[in-house]
Amino acid sequence: MEKRVTFRGWMLPLLLIAPQVVISAVFFFYPAGQAIWQSLFIPDPFGLSSQFVGMGNFEFLLGDKFYRAAFLTTAIFSILVTLCSMIPALFLAVLADRLIKGSGVYRTLLIWPYAVAPAVAGVLWLFMFNTRVGVISWYLGHLGYDWNHVLNGGEAMGLVVVASAWGRISYNFLFFFAALQAVPKSVIEAAAIDGAHFWRRFWTIVLPLLSPTTFFLLVVNIVYAFFETFGVIHTITGGGPQQSTTILVYKVFSDGFVGQDLGSSSAQSVILLFVVGLLTIIQFKYIEKRVHY
């Protein structure tokens, strides 16, 4: 039987949720509403006049093959960033969890990159892979590989994925590590007594028990890859070469703040809002069913 503590009356609960409601209204509902409204117009940059075009902005965007290509780029980029940040994080967490001595030091060191802002991380990686003075591109040159992310789209994508995933590994590590610590030792010991070796215990016991954390991180990392990697892309590639690293969010920026085309930029924000909403619904509807709490 579930125990519930309930409030009497409406005033106190309303008062208690009011700060959250106000914050959401000011920083989410109002701007989102503005974006939806503006997406129906083609305004001039100074706001002196604007022309109602209805769905015109959406038609323009969906008819643009470069915009459609940005969807594919975003999908590839998000999947790669999510995988590249979650798998190493899990691996490191499992290793750190097995440490008996000095785990605190490892933990601290592994968390550090999270403190680096995306734009700074971008510049750091750019320096290492700079085609002229980069340490890594210099070594690659000695090995006979001519690194040039300025012209090679695949290399540019790889670089922005690594730079975006790098700081994220720390964040994911933290959650995986905490979740691993919460796995009951008795279950693992019982399995060990039954003769299950480490990997078998990992696959059949630990991983399923980690599933709520993994699911949470999946959602959070995809949202991260969609929205927060702007700084990395802006500093490393600026969306190039050609359009190989132009993800949807970068296009919102370049159309809105470079092109001063606020109508198209708003319409893109609205599309993005729906895409991420849809993704989250899908994740909760289908993937969450496989999660054991």
């Binding site: 190039g240 070469p241 050609q242 359009q243 370049s254 470079v258 092109g259 085309d261």
Partner: peptide, 17 residues
């Protein structure tokens, strides 16, 4: 024009590569 320059940059990169 700032954005058109961006498009031109992209297309020029396609020539150089």
């Amino acid at each position: 024009f700032d954005q058109i320059r961006g498009i031109i940059d992209e297309e020029l990169e396609a020539i150089w590569s």
